[in-house]
Design a protein around this nucleic acid. Structure first.
Lengths: 335, 335
DNA sequence: CTGAAAGCGCTTACAG
DNA sequence: CTGAAAGCGCTTACAG
């Protein structure tokens, strides 16, 4: 059985396809009678207009792209859920695009999304090179940034105040008496990570605790454990480590367990994100919480607004992070 | 600047759009010269064919739907990643659809995906009612089942052997000397959960340990902790609990911590799935591992095959689960 | 080897 | 209040 088209409905209703189109879109002036009659017929036939046909005619595709480093990373999975839900609320569906923070993948997805005529894309992935977004920008596809900064690109964005988050982590640790601080950061290309480190460092310095460059390590999630091991085995072992995301912190936790370093007694660890992971680790992670749901929702809303009126000057919303204290931090042991 | 269309390319190349279309699709007999010349021009103009236009012309949309209960659940997030990657390999993009296991949402997504003309959909969500898939089936959209059984529907499927998984959990616990077993299951409507319980129960009974009905509790993830508390506070407290997924197990772990029940000394806990969560809990979770990546990959492959030749009789592949022993299980304490 | 033409399923002015 | 017609950007026979 072929799917019914607008022609079938029109024929069954004894009207033109234009009229049917009008009732589908609730436009034009059509008598209530006719309108209801046609709706009835559509129901009976199980007719649903093809979105791809209507998209071709200049309307929107109601599809969005969501670029994230990795959908299987709980942080982004939670973001995705928020984006999906808010998207549904506005009539949009979302394509997942995991980029592994690789420019080539970003580029491939950018082209793909453009070919698919998506109405917009949320960029939650790192970008070394702005030019990877060219396909999107050229095609006039609205873009909004989620938890990323892009210098010199005028687009809406939601971020959490990463600087403040890093700062809050430092304050917490300093308050607990720690003097010998280390940082496990993401790759340098990730601006959010840089900001977190910057905030952490500034606050540490204000307290008279300049960071030892050897104790500020950039790493990937895979290598986090190894880098943390280095830290634990270094001569002047730090008594506290600030990790720029929970996954990194988990790597540190694992390294500690392997080396028999007791957390938090011998070393405090602070994460960042507060995904589901943070509450289930051993010990549960003290971490800087991002308002994940709000991030996703806001990104979607900004994008939709942008789709609605492309002219608008891009909005930038900054959400506050918050410190969630669990069991991975404690007073520095008196030596 | 408007996006270039096939007409622009044709004009620039001084040929008809038919010819351009032919070179796009690598079809027809066109002289190498012309072909390369036209390709050149397409490159220069940054021309990329619109997938929605080509989809309208009867070709595929190269879009797929992935129905899962919740993309923010790490198990499904990991599945999604595998599906996405394998999809890319075959040229497909995927829409995320979180259903919360609610029929209404499944139905809404089924309709939506049909309207979007997706080439196929992977169903990894629970379905109380088969009729929710009607929109898809009627529209002749291929469907494949991932980790779900659907009686009386003839479609390809990948599952892990849930029965065997439940059985393996029971064996492990019995081997450790446990006699007083409890089960935390998902809602009854989830067939995979039912199978796991069935396998667990059968193996327990074979060992002469029939399950106390009061100790086999169906619950949601939200209520897992509360249900586990009941278990821990019941008169004849179980010494081991089999949880039908890791999230449920985490609920049990949390309940135990709250009540001061030491795991695994006072009670062993076995999970199911082996997502990233299992390795970070306190204590790390002994769990029945699903081959998650393989599940996602296989589902995608089966779907693509189905899209290729709709006639084929549906394949059913069964993947083996495996026991991953961590620290949440131990010998029963001698009383 | 290549072009003219019809058609995919819609929407949108434009008439009436 | 409703219909005829053009057009969205492609693909696919069909000619030549």
């Amino acid at each position: 059985m072929m799917k019914a088209t607008i022609y079938d409905v029109a024929k069954a209703a004894g009207v033109s396809i234009a009229t049917v189109s009008l009732v589908i879109n609730g436009k034009g002036k059509i008598s209530e009678e006719r309108r209801n009659e046609i709706k009835q017929i559509m129901m009976q036939m199980g007719y649903k207009p093809s979105m791809i046909a209507s998209a071709l005619t200049g309307k929107k595709t109601y599809a969005l792209g969501l670029l994230v480093p990795d959908i299987s990373n709980p942080f982004f999975a939670e973001i995705a859920r928020a984006v999906e839900d808010e998207g549904q609320r506005h009539g949009y569906s979302v394509f997942i695009c995991s980029t592994d923070n690789k420019d080539e993948k970003v580029e491939r997805y950018a082209e793909l999304l453009q070919q698919k005529n998506v109405d917009g894309v949320i960029i939650g992935t790192g970008l070394k090179d702005l030019s990877v977004l060219d396909p999107l920008l050229k095609a006039n596809i609205p873009v909004t940034l989620l938890a990323r900064e892009l210098p010199s690109v005028e687009v809406p964005s939601v971020v959490v105040d990463d600087y403040k988050g890093g700062s809050a982590a430092a304050e917490h640790l300093i308050m607990l008496g720690h003097r010998n601080l280390a940082v496990l950061a993401e790759q340098d290309s990730i601006s959010s990570s840089r900001e977190r480190v910057r905030g952490f460092r500034a606050t540490a310095e204000q307290a008279g605790l300049p960071l030892d460059p050897a104790f500020v390590l950039s790493t990937s999630i895979k290598e986090a454990k190894a880098k943390a091991s280095e830290l634990f085995q270094s001569g002047n072992r730090p008594t506290a480590i600030f990790c720029c995301n929970d996954l990194l912190a988990i790597g540190a936790l694992q390294a500690a367990k392997e080396l028999g370093v007791r957390i938090p007694e011998e070393c405090s660890i602070v994460g960042f994100d507060d995904t589901v992971l943070a509450s289930v680790t051993d010990p549960p992670l003290t971490t800087i919480a991002q308002p994940i749901e709000q991030l996703g929702q806001t990104a979607l809303q900004l994008l939709v607004r942008q789709i609605g009126k492309p002219g608008e000057s891009p909005e930038r919303v900054v959400l506050p992070p918050s410190l969630t204290i669990r069991k991975s931090t404690a007073m520095r042991a008196s030596i």
